[in-house]
Design a protein around this nucleic acid. Sequence first.
DNA 1: CCACCTTTGTTGACATGTCAAGCAGATCGT
DNA 2: ACGATCTGCTTGACATGTCAACAAAGGTGG
Lengths: 162, 162
Amino acid sequence: MPEPRWLTPAQMHAWRGYRRMRALLDLQITRDLAADSGLSDADYDVLSSVSEAPGGRLRLGELAAGMRWSVSRVSHHVSRMEQRGLVARDDCASDGRGATVVLTDAGWRTIRDAATHHVASVREHFIDLLDADDIAALGRIAEKVVGHLSEVTAPTPARRGR
Amino acid sequence: MPEPRWLTPAQMHAWRGYRRMRALLDLQITRDLAADSGLSDADYDVLSSVSEAPGGRLRLGELAAGMRWSVSRVSHHVSRMEQRGLVARDDCASDGRGATVVLTDAGWRTIRDAATHHVASVREHFIDLLDADDIAALGRIAEKVVGHLSEVTAPTPARRGR
DNA sequence: CCACCTTTGTTGACATGTCAAGCAGATCGT
DNA sequence: ACGATCTGCTTGACATGTCAACAAAGGTGG
């Protein structure tokens, strides 16, 4: 086993900071979302994905791919949201197996209302704490990391993992 | 309801990038950890927290506070890790109610081994993709956000939430 | 047209997280 | 010293996520 290259103090600081930020930020955003709109993060992501899709409808598989969820997870989650009256399943015209997800009226109302609160929450606990340089740096960092991981985790599994 | 201040394009880019990075990075780190060491993120955090504690022992509540977990979650998780032989519960000398968590020999071996792989994984998918400026910026950003959220989510509930 | 394999979703069993109730030892006021 | 309350942890019921098995429709080659 090769001796690992441990992180430098600055790197350690950045990594631990990222981890802690991630934990606290998620917790707060989740809380606000639940308190303001009665939605979980997952609910919000589903509603917002479907609402932004052309025609306000999405195949289950596409929804799963866009959110990087397993199809099974989407199916379970959509079933629960269906029972709460936020979304509905609709048969797909061009493919008998397919199911498309659409928002109900209540779903549209919910996401429009939730978005307002959500953006305020994101601003208060994240965006508005950062200056223009921070925002630019964060965008740059995310691009690098997402670019790398999109290759590694590519849908076409040439070779995967590390 | 006040008209929300929507995010500027740069802010939206940063926010979406952060969310996507967070999702992909977590997924990859989790995968590597499972493949290399047979541990979940949660397992790793518990082992590393306890191993770094003075005397290699931690009260359940302290472990929970340090990781921002509920006590109940720690209790459940420790029970499962106990069954796998990674940690053990030990009675607390000074408080009859207390339970302290300690690593077993297997637990020590596991964390020492896992740390090596883990740091390599973190480097490959995150740290080594970033230059010194990025690292500095990330540390700075995390400090701001964590500083803010530590107040909002303070253990002493003066006032909470948004 | 039909056997066969692929694609798309659904389902059930199980792992993990959350919440509220419960229990036993510690602490406090008298 | 003793009852009331508090604290630290455990437990059970339930919500959510994962994995693998299954079902049904689509596509393909004979």
